[in-house]
Amino acid sequence: MEDKYHTAPIKIAKSFPLEDELAVMVMDVSPGMLEGDCYELEWTAGEGSGIYVTNQSFMKVHPCPDGRGAALKQRFSLAPGAFVQHMPEPVMLYKDAKFASDTVVHLAPGSAWMQAEVLCPGRTLRGEVFAYRRFDNRLAVYYGDELIFAQRQRIEPAVQPLSSAGCWDDKTHFGTFYLFSDKIDGSHPAAVREALDALPQTAGREVLYGVTLTHRHGLAVSAAAGAAWPLQQVLEAAWTCARSAVFGKQPLRFRK
């Protein structure tokens, strides 16, 4: 890591050397995101660099009684050959929370960007299931100057029939895995799907998932379940398979 700058409550807690990559732990030293908070994170990956970014715990969004909400803005700029993996812990939306997340990625030729996300419906053991106000999630990916992917997910439990058949039905947690690289080809969705089909399913915690190519240079996995941990297992399997099938990389190993 050549340079870093942060202000409270966000900081780089620690970096960990890997075989040919660097793992970075981002820490939020507050109890979580409160109404009016806006976190802005900008990452610049140099040519040929490899980085794995995660955080220390769930991103907790507290109640927003005034309706202003909390916001997260993330920007990733990748030089040629950069390899960025953004794997945060799940998002936890408390009762009356309102949260907007906006991520923009700029890819150069030969670079690769991955991200896995899990959305929790609230503190389920406290009866908070879809009791939040709104979740607005946006992702835009550019290859050079071309917009190759744009996604928006807006969930408003009070006005949407989330438990209806054809919507979320009996599922409460949602997860996604994205990979964007000009090395992706038509064989890679089948490889990821095969890896996910090989995972054991736990009774009562079954995961529904789908794998597809995006319009250009992208692969997407969407999954739904009744808890966070089965989704994390599925997305980790997709990530591990993608590392191997697309880039010939082994699973990450932290040095002892």
Rank of each mutant, 00 (worst) to 15 (best):
P31I: 09
A190C: 11
Q151N: 10
V53A: 09
D182A: 11
L107Q: 01
S111K: 04
E146T: 09
R255F: 12
G248T: 08
E47K: 15
G48V: 13
S111R: 04
L139Q: 00
L231E: 02
H215G: 09
P189C: 05
V221C: 02
I10L: 15
V192L: 14
R133W: 02
L78R: 03
F254H: 13
E35L: 08
Q151H: 11
R75H: 13
D136N: 09
L22N: 07
P109E: 11
K11L: 12
M27Y: 14
E156R: 11
K73M: 08
L162S: 02
D3R: 14
I148H: 03
D185N: 12
E156I: 11
V234K: 00
A45E: 03
E47C: 12
G50A: 15
G67K: 08
L179N: 00
S49F: 07
A131I: 04
V84F: 06
Q153H: 13
A45I: 06
G48H: 12
L41D: 01
D37W: 04
V105Q: 00
Q115V: 07
R138M: 03
I148D: 02
A140V: 09
L162Q: 01
G127T: 08
G110H: 05
L78Q: 01
A97C: 09
S222M: 03
R126D: 11
A140N: 08
R134Q: 13
Q232F: 02
G226R: 12
F174T: 03
L18S: 06
